[in-house]
């Protein structure tokens, strides 16, 4: 694809004899939301980990904005503008919400400052505040992350990612474990983010997926079963049998 922001070719990852991800080739178009769905154990999170640099692929290539990033360590991938969120909430529990976001924003300083107080970096602080506000957490800024509600912690997870100002978002089940009200709020946020971000999103909530996604890839047993526009996926017999049908039943 000409305007692919992120592209994988033949991406595979084996753990011992088990292939968690097998020969996955994807093209994520710039500015689009690309959802990855599939049953548990389909290799979706492993795929995200391969894209984010948390895991090294056994085989295949990943390219981002035209350059080969295969095997890059996670911090380099993040510095290149790819942010990720985790399925299991992964925030700094002892820090306040604002401190969490500040830590994230400071990651994007052009070099590591040793002697200048962090608080004097105005732009960084503003970025942290913006991320908090974007995720509707501005009233909870001084609250320790451990004391936030589950839904708020999930929002903080997203806010931290946004504070690093990434262009491409890797979202691992952003709605996991949320109640309907919180869910609606986050779907709304994701829609707003979709306006100026490219996203790869794993999600089980099919209503949300069909509401947000431009492209859907269905994974089963580590491989891509089908990939295409939401209507095409909805109509795909094979997908209905292998996945959607089961889920609906």
């Amino acid at each position: 694809m000409a305007d692919a922001m992120l592209e994988t070719r033949g991406l595979s990852r084996r753990f011992g004899g088990l292939a968690a991800v097998q020969d996955v080739s994807l093209a994520v178009a710039r500015g689009k939301v690309h959802a990855i769905v599939g049953p548990n154990g389909a290799g979706k999170t492993t795929l995200i980990n391969l894209l984010s640099g948390d895991l090294r692929p056994s085989d295949g290539k990943v390219s981002y904005q035209g350059s080969d990033i295969t095997g890059w360590p996670a911090h380099r991938v993040a510095q290149a503008g790819i942010g990720r969120s985790y399925q299991k909430t992964n925030v700094f529990r002892e820090f306040t919400a604002l401190e969490n976001c500040a830590l994230a924003a400071e990651a994007r300083l052009p070099r590591l400052h040793l002697f200048r107080a962090a608080a004097t970096f105005r732009e960084t602080a503003a970025r942290a505040e913006r991320a908090l506000a974007l995720c509707s957490l501005e009233t909870r800024r001084e609250t320790r992350a451990a004391s936030l509600s589950y839904g708020e912690q999930r929002q903080l997870e997203l806010a931290m990612m946004l504070a690093t100002e990434p262009q491409l978002l890797l979202l691992d089940e952003p709605l996991a474990g949320m109640g309907p009200e919180e869910s609606a709020r986050v779907v709304d946020l994701l829609k707003r983010l979709a306006a100026d971000h490219t996203m790869v999103m794993i999600e089980h909530d099919m209503d949300a997926v069909f509401a947000i996604a431009d492209t859907i890839t269905v994974m089963v047993n580590g491989s891509v079963l089908a990939s295409g526009a939401p209507q095409a996926i909805r109509a795909n017999r094979e997908v209905q049998r292998a996945y959607l049908g089961e889920d609906a039943a």
Binding site: A74, H75, R76, A78, N90, F92, R93, L103
Partner: peptide
């Protein structure tokens, strides 16, 4: 506190 999260944020740990 959390080495892996710091990497994901872009820190060269």
């Amino acid at each position: 506190a959390n080495e892996g999260r710091m990497r994901a944020l872009g820190y060269d740990v």
